[in-house]
């Protein structure tokens, strides 16, 4: 049974509706981070104003799940319904991957393995500017295949960027298979820990656990933080859960109705 808070539930509903309207995939990837994104936008990220020195930065390095962030931006009234309904439409700023041209997105992404470097630079900048703003980077587990990501992991630990948090969405899947079969990441927590990060393993679909973990982090001193978030790919829609095809697949009408009803039941 899904234990989603209201905000994450709304994100899931928007993901399903928009993916159907646009007839596109990446549904499972977006659903797996709905709770992480929901808690971040609803409870954690400090965004007093667009140009505020203390505005936290959030980077969705696994850009293919951008719809979850668009949903959050809409729910926080940072983008309009009209913009949201333009998801994947001709002439829209809301493509499959997030673009910084869209207000509310600081860094474009889509090429895996780059966001953590951007985030480390952003965290270093905040420290140099003596700002209390924090940087959160959401990466996927498959993204940890990218060698460049580990360059950023080393840099961040070396410079003790405590204002930087990497959230690893461990749904165990990537585009063409399960991570354990494609390029094993285990033991992922030990790897991040061995690189000098402050590592926390949590249920990434449990909003309370997510919130409690973020709130307990020391962003002012010590090591950068890695949240190994164990998630379920396609969380909330039974037939999508842990199924490889829902990385790319769009929904049929019947699948859409079932997905909606399951999401609704769990709201």
């Amino acid at each position: 049974m899904l234990k989603s808070n209201d905000f994450s539930g709304k994100i899931r509903k928007i993901i399903i509706e928009q993916c159907k309207r646009a007839n596109v995939g990446h549904i499972g990837s977006a659903l797996s981070i709905a709770d992480l994104v929901g808690v971040l936008y609803d409870s954690i990220l400090k965004m007093p104003a667009d140009d505020h020195n203390r505005r936290d930065r959030f980077i969705l390095s696994k850009g293919h799940a951008a719809l979850a962030v668009y949903a959050a931006l809409f729910l926080k009234k940072m983008i309009s319904l009209e913009q949201l309904n333009g998801y994947c439409a001709d002439g829209s700023l809301l493509g499959v991957h997030p673009e910084h041209f869209l207000k509310g997105v600081d860094f474009s992404s889509g090429s895996l393995g780059q966001g953590l470097s951007f985030g480390a630079g952003a965290a270093l900048a905040a420290r140099m500017q003596k700002s209390a703003r924090r940087v959160f980077v959401l990466v996927s587990d498959g993204e940890c295949n990218e060698g460049a990501l580990w360059e950023a992991v080393m840099f961040s630990a070396h410079h003790k960027l405590a204002n930087l948090t990497a959230i690893i969405d461990c749904n165990g899947q990537q585009a063409f298979g399960y991570t354990k079969d494609v390029l094993s990441l285990d033991p992922l927590a030990q790897r991040w820990r061995a690189f000098g990060w402050d590592v926390h393993e949590i249920d990434g679909n449990d909003p309370k656990a997510i919130k409690d973990t973020f709130e307990a982090l020391d962003f002012s001193s010590g090591s950068p933080h890695a949240i190994i978030a164990r998630t379920v790919f396609g969380k909330g829609v039974s037939y999508m859960q842990s199924q490889i095809k829902w990385h790319y697949w769009p929904m049929s009408d019947a699948e859409y109705q079932q997905a909606l009803s399951e999401i609704k039941d769990n709201e």
Partner: peptide, 18 residues
């Protein structure tokens, strides 16, 4: 360090902050 990809990314993050 000998990590030019990350260096380019770090520079991006720094430049975004001014």
């Amino acid at each position: 360090g000998v990590a030019e990809q990350n260096m380019a990314g770090i520079a991006t993050g720094l430049a975004e902050a001014g």
